[in-house]
Simulated assay, not measured.
Amino acid sequence: MWLAERAEMHDFLRWFVSRRPPQTGFEMKEYKGCDRASKSDARGAWFWRSSASLCLLSCLFASTVAFTSLPALSDPFRIGGVEYLGDLPTFIAERDGHFARHHADVEVITSGSGRETLGQLRAGEIDFALMAMTPLVFDALANPARDGPDTPVILANLSHVRPVIHLMLLDAGDVPLKDALRGRTVGVPRGTNADYVLHVTARIAGLSEGDYTLLDMDPEEMSDALAAGRVDAVSVWDPWAFRLRNRFGDRLREEPDTGNYVSRWLLVTRKEVAETDTGHTRAILHAYRDAVDWIQANPEAALAAHEMRISDLRAIPRSRDVDLLFDVTLDWSMIVSFRQQLAWAIRSMNVSDGEMPSVMDMVAPGPLATVAPGAITIPYLPEDSGRQDK
């Protein structure tokens, strides 16, 4: 509507300037040969045209300023982020003002894990959440009906990372992992990416979950739990791994998940936000795309910024050992990851597969389709398709 009204105003002003004032009779090029009355008419014509032209320029300037200075969207939205390498786009988007540049009034709230941000999203404490696939898989099993307004839905995948999860054993010695882990107690935040990576690493080593004991534990508890002997090993990500290296040094043995698993980092919101606040949702996606563009153009500076953000003066950064790709997409690899983790979670939770959640019910492609349709390679039905079988 704004653009239509602006065009109508410009059309009127062009018509206004093109009109000749009544009874002028002469063009300015004939001015010297005119009598006094005609000269007066010509001066009137010149004044008429000059005033109208000035009016046109003023209106054009005012309308352009109004168009390029649209007010920021009302009501600040809260984004739940994590101090995690995969969540680097959130940090860059906030630091470099990309959210504000796209008129998104945003507050970033940092939590310890994607499991925490999902809980905050479900509770209505935040409006957007960053997390790995694993918390969503467990949420889908607990809530297979995906039609409620507070249902978490995926807006985009932001990163593919390998390796960032570390199985860290204290005083394990130089023995095969199968022997080092058997009979040990492992601290891990259950229902997180670290939980799934531990499963993959142990299976490759030839162990089943009955060969070791799992203890659900938040990352901030792990250092003291290792020191007190409550656990023998932990599965965790940076920056918590940084701090464990700093405290225990050579006593720690690390088993990074090299080549066995690629973590995906997802931007998630509630279904009602994706469907009712499309303007703000699109603005946030634009901001993430700008942040990812900067990271791709400045990879060394981006990693340095991450290390400065999460490391204290004594920590030993390890970010440069990872294989990292940032993007803002919805692609087939996300579906494959969901199905793999779903099969594992069903066995882990001992639940029946009678009512299985569909990954397509967990995705909201509409906002990204309007921002960057080429970034979507999964099947979806455009909102304007006219189909009735959605």
Rank of each mutant, 00 (worst) to 15 (best):
Gly173Thr: 02
Val175Asp: 01
Val175Ser: 05
Pro176Ala: 02
Lys178Glu: 03
Asp179Trp: 02
Asp179Pro: 03
Leu181Ser: 00
Leu181Gly: 00
Arg182Asn: 02
Arg182Ile: 08
Gly183Leu: 02
Gly183Tyr: 02
Gly183Ser: 03
Arg184Val: 09
Thr185Trp: 04
Thr185Lys: 13
Val188Lys: 00
Pro189Gln: 14
Arg190Ser: 04
Arg190Val: 14
Thr192Trp: 08
Ala194Leu: 08
Ala194Ile: 04
Asp195Thr: 11
Asp195Val: 14
Tyr196Thr: 03
Leu198Lys: 08
His199Cys: 03
Thr201Phe: 13
Ala202Arg: 06
Ala202Phe: 02
Ala205Ile: 01
Leu207Asp: 06
Ser208Thr: 15
Ser208Pro: 01
Glu209Lys: 09
Glu209Arg: 12
Gly210Arg: 06
Tyr212Leu: 10
Tyr212Gly: 12
Tyr212Glu: 07
Thr213Ala: 14
Leu214Cys: 07
Leu215Glu: 14
Leu215Thr: 11
Asp216Ser: 15
Asp216Gln: 04
Met217Gly: 09
Pro219Asn: 09
Pro219Ser: 15
Pro219Lys: 09
Glu220Ser: 13
Ser223His: 05
Ala225Glu: 06
Ala225Gln: 11
Leu226His: 05
Leu226Thr: 07
Ala227Met: 11
Gly229Asn: 12
Arg230Gly: 04
Asp232Ser: 08
Ser235Thr: 10
Trp237Ile: 12
Trp237Val: 13
Asp238Cys: 03
Asp238Ser: 10
Trp240Ala: 13
